[in-house]
């Protein structure tokens, strides 16, 4: 049974790391600020989310697993809000200056 959980963890964590790779490459290579923001929020929510889901079955007890889920939830809200805030900041500083 644990082999199944280990295999699931490997699959989820490697996809999470892949999204981090995609987000980092996007953050470095994209031409414009807003496109970089698009790449960044993918790496943020998806990369961290998949890693958190991958590590869920490996957590020592239920409390740690629950804490992992809470972190992922907070990061979803925080990632969405900060993405909007940064985009608004960029839009304002581009048009007012």
């Amino acid at each position: 049974m644990t082999m199944f959980w280990d295999a699931m963890t490997i699959v989820f964590v490697s996809t999470g790391v892949f999204f981090f790779l995609a987000g980092t490459v996007g953050l470095l290579r994209f031409p414009d600020t807003l496109t970089r923001l698009h790449a960044l929020t993918k790496a943020d929510t998806l990369g961290f989310g998949l890693i958190a889901i991958g590590l869920l079955p490996q957590s020592a007890d239920v409390r740690v697993g629950l804490k992992l889920l809470v972190i992922w939830l907070i990061l979803q809200f925080a990632g969405a809000c900060s993405g909007q805030l940064i985009a608004q900041f960029e839009h304002r500083s581009r048009h007012s200056s």
């Binding site: 987000g23 980092t24 953050l27 960044l40 961290f48 972190i71 990061l75 990632g79 900060s82 940064i86």
Partner: peptide
């Protein structure tokens, strides 16, 4: 500054991961 904040944001999330 928006790009620099994005790098800091990724640092926070990557550090958490």
């Amino acid at each position: 500054p928006a790009d620099r904040m994005m790098a800091a944001q990724l640092l926070g999330t990557g550090g958490g991961a």
